[in-house]
Write a protein that binds this DNA or RNA. Structure first.
Lengths: 234, 234
DNA sequence: CGCTCTTTTGATCGGAGTCAAAGTCGGTGG
DNA sequence: CCACCGACTTTGACTCCGATCAAAAGAGCG
């Protein structure tokens, strides 16, 4: 059952890395990727856990990673799904804090581990890289702030539509309009910040309105326009 | 009626600035503060508005600034209160986007304006400053993420207690245990993400439990321990 | 094939939003 | 100085969205 997973070479990781971070020169890249510390995380495997000490961050070479927080009652709130080209856990590394999120592979993934010291040295020595990192962080911050307003003011229906739009943007639809991320109803609920049953009921409603279709975990989006309308995104 | 406001000298601004950003050398500081573009904003005055183009950011020399987003129905969600030593609006500057928040002085304030080009040049040339900015941004990002989880999972009662704790931390209590920020019930509601009436009812409840007292807009916190307990902060 | 996890639907309950109205406070001007 | 005005606060009544509980049906997997 266990397939032999081919891990990428340093060159392949570097190439992917450069699509996001183009500011680094050859020697800096070599510093970053000198030891090929790639690791394969099969679907369902934990990457790091909230509250634990963390000694580095991870560059996503492939796969999909769920980044989430666990609230008091043990319910998870999904902060985002990270994919190829994303860096995760750097926030805790930079602030030298315990991880304030957990991360788990929801699709077979290959991650490249970057020790704290390497990241921090790079940030301190290469201001263009630091600038790129600020931009990424600011982008995430803007999204988080908007999401606070949404979750505080919008109805669950509006938020579900919005989350679907975000997923469509981030992971796309194939030629059959099927959303290219496999996600459970519960995870959808944990993004929206609601109960699983509420998501199910609203999806039924969307189905009856001809906005989506679903067979099992495959979601076909048949009317993206209406979805945007419902989400009331300005 | 209008008092003569004494604006600070460059030296005074620089001194305050260095309490947060100690990485800059004399010439960089001079670059940043060469023209004394301080401005006084009386209580109630707008600083910048959501959706507008923004050409610089602001360093808070004194006073209290409300940073908020306006949702679809015109209701505001307060993202944070900025005070002495804080930088506001840099997120939009760095991402070169329209302002995604508005800001307004809720207490007479003096702000120093920093043009985009100056900030961005500095970020690109001084990696220690860039690193400091990343840290600040990451800190805000962590707080925003936690707040998403809270608002999605906690009750209004828990969130109100938490918001009060945050205000206590940020603005402190005087010797009479009175919270050192003057805030309307509506603003409290807009931080918590609830209706004004709900805040009032819960404050009454807190009063009856001997946790707070209030005369007008003065809030005396008589039992911080209980407040932390209610907030269920982990 | 049986076990478990996920999805779906139904019924019920309660937290919190909305609407309405009265009370309070502070400031302004006559 | 006092009366008035507008903004803010408080309380009550009602409604409803969405959470929770319960149970059945379906899907995936060893």
């Amino acid at each position: 059952m266990k397939k032999n997973i081919k891990l990428p070479t340093c060159e392949e990781v570097i190439e992917t890395f450069q699509e996001t971070f183009s500011q680094l020169c050859a020697e800096e890249l070599n510093l970053l990727f000198f030891n090929n510390s790639c690791k394969y995380y099969p679907k369902g495997e934990d990457i790091y856990q909230q509250g634990r000490r963390i000694n580095g961050c991870y560059f996503v070479y492939s796969g999909i990673i769920k980044v989430f927080q666990t609230g008091g009652e043990g319910k998870e709130q999904i902060i985002r799904f990270a994919k190829k080209g994303d860096l995760i856990a750097f926030r805790s590394v930079i602030n030298k804090e315990l991880a304030c999120t957990s991360a788990k592979a929801v699709d077979n993934a290959i991650l490249y581990y970057i020790p704290s010291s390497v990241l921090i040295n790079l940030l301190n020595s290469n201001s263009e890289f630091a600038y790129q990192m600020i931009k990424i962080t600011c982008k995430e911050l803007g999204e988080s702030n908007c999401y606070i307003t949404d979750i505080a003011q919008k109805t669950v229906r509006e938020r579900l539509a919005e989350v679907l739009n975000i997923l469509i943007n981030d992971f796309g639809l194939d030629k059959e309009q099927i959303l290219q991320i496999s996600i459970t109803r519960e995870e959808l609920a944990n993004m929206v910040g609601t109960a699983t049953e509420s998501v199910i009921r609203l999806l039924s409603e969307f189905k009856s309105k001809g906005i989506v279709e679903s067979k099992g975990r495959k979601l076909r989006i048949t009317n993206t326009k209406k979805l945007i309308e419902i989400a009331k995104t300005y």
